[in-house]
Design a protein around this nucleic acid. Sequence first.
DNA 1: TTTTTGTTCGGACGCCCGTACTAATTGGTA
DNA 2: TACCAATTAGTACGGGCGTCCGAACAAAAA
Lengths: 165, 165
Amino acid sequence: MAFSENTAQKILTSAYELLSTKGLAQVSMRDIAKRAGVALSQITYYFKTKENLIASVVANQFHRLMDKVAPLLEGCHSQEEAEQVAAEYFYQDQNMLRLLIDFTAQALWVPAFREQVEKWQQKATEILTRIPRFSEKAEQTARKVLAGFFGNAVLAVFPPESTPG
Amino acid sequence: MAFSENTAQKILTSAYELLSTKGLAQVSMRDIAKRAGVALSQITYYFKTKENLIASVVANQFHRLMDKVAPLLEGCHSQEEAEQVAAEYFYQDQNMLRLLIDFTAQALWVPAFREQVEKWQQKATEILTRIPRFSEKAEQTARKVLAGFFGNAVLAVFPPESTPG
DNA sequence: TTTTTGTTCGGACGCCCGTACTAATTGGTA
DNA sequence: TACCAATTAGTACGGGCGTCCGAACAAAAA
């Protein structure tokens, strides 16, 4: 029977590629299935609903990023430095950035997405709590880092007319 | 014949109410027409397309806000103060905030929306240029204000578990 | 072998969408 | 009054959507 991790993985990968370059609203499950080279119903089979597929894609990417970023954050001495580190790392990948922005905006209206965004906050708070010089006001700092992230994300994605920063 | 400013205005108002409370993707032109108490084709007649209607709604709100905020900004002495002023004013209306966030996110993918967001930048830059102590680096400041705005907007809309900031 | 279980596929269902079209109505003007 | 353009209304169209279903198939279990 061979539980094909392959198929689920192919779907996830293709979904990410499409969602991050075309936007959540512009991608259909048929597009994803076609790119993954599988039948449409395979998505239903593995992810049940579109909403769930998207949430899985984003959760995937988030964990992947966090694993790399967390160690870097632990070396920071100030909130500003933490923001800087997060920024420089995230902004390397504009597609990912766009996906996160789009997802967060949808989280305003889709409860399941909102839960996930709230988990980002919790995760960031958790990481900062483990760092002595932040632990006291980890939650506040986490929120500020998040705010800085989104603010700068928007800037990164809407570049100035003339000179890039 | 009486060009009924009424109908167009009713559509704009109803559209804003729906879009700002349910999100761009969750509102159909039929929903808007029904709430405005007009025929569906009236929307096509006055605004041509859904995209154009949404853009009109947002532009409307933006100008309304700018007229009130611009004078306040002129009283500011620092970038931080400008951010503060913008923040406190905007955050009074969470629905409007949600609409702006959603719209901006869609602007990542919809060229017409993107143009409008870029106009916000220009407008902000223009305002700051007219203020002597900002005029030198108006564009930079405008971008930072914008970044602060969006960062804080996301925070305002995703409140912390326990204590509000 | 036979049975069971997990996987894949193609297709179809019903719904709702944005848009286009046509006919009716209105109201100012001549 | 009659006319004409602006406005309104109702409806149809074509298409894309997420989801669901039943059959075929493969691998493991019995």
